[in-house]
């Protein structure tokens, strides 16, 4: 049997750089040389604060970047370069790559019935009759545990709660049978009690449908519940990547460590809650050298001068930091 590593990944982003127009009429790079790969059936988490470029990275896969944004690099989906060919991007969008957004209260169209929103893209992509598309949609609604799916098809978004709407949004995204689901903060807008249900749902769907998921979140708690592998982004760059368990148990980049220290843990006594000082830099005002150095406890002169490369430190593990904080920090 071929191991996972020899199989080409489902999605592979190589050297992606995205620049945005600034108010002053210049261009600023918001994403800088990101490499990212997702295997089949894999859940990859992409973490970072707002402005880190994680959402732009995800939108570029769908070709949904805001007007004026210019992506450079390669986005290979099953060997097709989505950046090189507009047609490839269009044929993939919605059919093979689907997306759910943060706020289910606004992501569904308020004036179209659930049935319409569940089936229109299914009919378009799979060339199904309305009847056949209805069958697919009802099955999918049932799969995300919407009670009375047949009746729900005739109803409208405002008649459902936030959690239910997010389930519907997920069902709608998956109805056309995509291979990759991009979930942008899918639980952030929901009540804590509802969040766990949505996360379990995504996990279950991954197994049932052999789905790959790119999970974008600033919440490492959500990440730890779901992701197989984790990428951490800061100021448009990937600063750490690795298997979820490794990264969360032993963060090697000071930024990842800072994020984790800011999380409440089980036992407060041995892990004092510590907030990251400062705030993430705005696009166009990224500091020179390692963009994190102004907030870093370990920053040295080299950090201010050179941009650190993402260097492998262990199998499947890489960090972009010249200093190994594990050695520098007393345990």
């Amino acid at each position: 049997m071929a191991s996972v590593s020899t199989k080409p990944p489902l999605l592979s982003i190589e050297g992606l750089t995205i620049s945005l127009p600034t108010a002053e009429g210049q261009r600023a790079e918001a994403v800088r040389g990101v490499d990212l790969a997702i295997g089949r059936g894999e859940i990859v988490g992409l973490a970072g604060e707002s402005g880190s470029g994680k959402t732009l990275t995800a939108l570029s896969v769908l070709g949904l970047l805001p007007g004026g944004a210019r992506p450079v690099g390669r986005i290979l989906f099953e060997e097709r370069d989505l950046l090189a060919s507009g047609r490839a991007a269009r044929s993939v969008r919605g059919a093979e790559v689907a997306m759910v957004f943060q706020d289910p209260m606004t992501a569904l169209h308020p004036m179209l019935s659930i049935g319409r929103q569940m089936t229109e893209h299914v009919r378009f992509h799979l060339r199904l009759s309305q009847h056949a598309a209805d069958t697919v949609a009802v099955e999918m609604l049932d799969r995300v545990r919407i009670p009375n799916p047949r009746e729900a098809m005739t109803r409208y978004p405002h008649q459902f709660s936030g959690g239910m709407r997010q389930r519907i949004a997920i069902a709608s995204a998956l109805a056309a049978g995509p291979k990759l689901l991009i979930a942008d903060e899918p639980t952030t807008a929901l009540d804590v009690t509802v969040q766990a249900g949505i996360l379990r749902l995504i996990e279950g769907l991954r197994r049932e449908l052999q789905l790959s998921v790119l999970l974008i979140t600033h919440d490492l708690g959500v990440m730890s519940a779901l992701a197989d592998r984790v990428y951490v982004m800061y100021a448009g760059r990937v600063v750490e990547r690795g298997a979820r368990a490794d990264v969360l148990a032993q963060p090697r980049h000071p930024y990842t460590r800072g994020l984790l220290d800011a999380l409440p843990h089980g036992s407060p006594s041995d892990h004092p809650l510590r907030a990251l000082p400062g705030s993430p830099p705005a696009i166009g005002r990224f500091p020179a050298g390692c963009a994190f150095h102004p907030r870093c406890r370990f920053a040295e002169d080299i950090c201010r001068a050179d941009v650190p490369d993402l260097m492998p430190v262990a199998p499947g593990r890489a960090i972009a930091c010249p200093i190994d904080p594990l050695a520098a920090v007393p345990a």
Partner: peptide, 20 residues
């Protein structure tokens, strides 16, 4: 957001504008 959702579903631009 719902227009962005419609685009993300890969609907043709004409449908996105005229319907959604």
């Amino acid at each position: 957001d719902y227009v962005r959702s419609a685009r993300a579903k890969g609907l043709p631009e004409r449908t996105v504008i005229l319907r959604h």
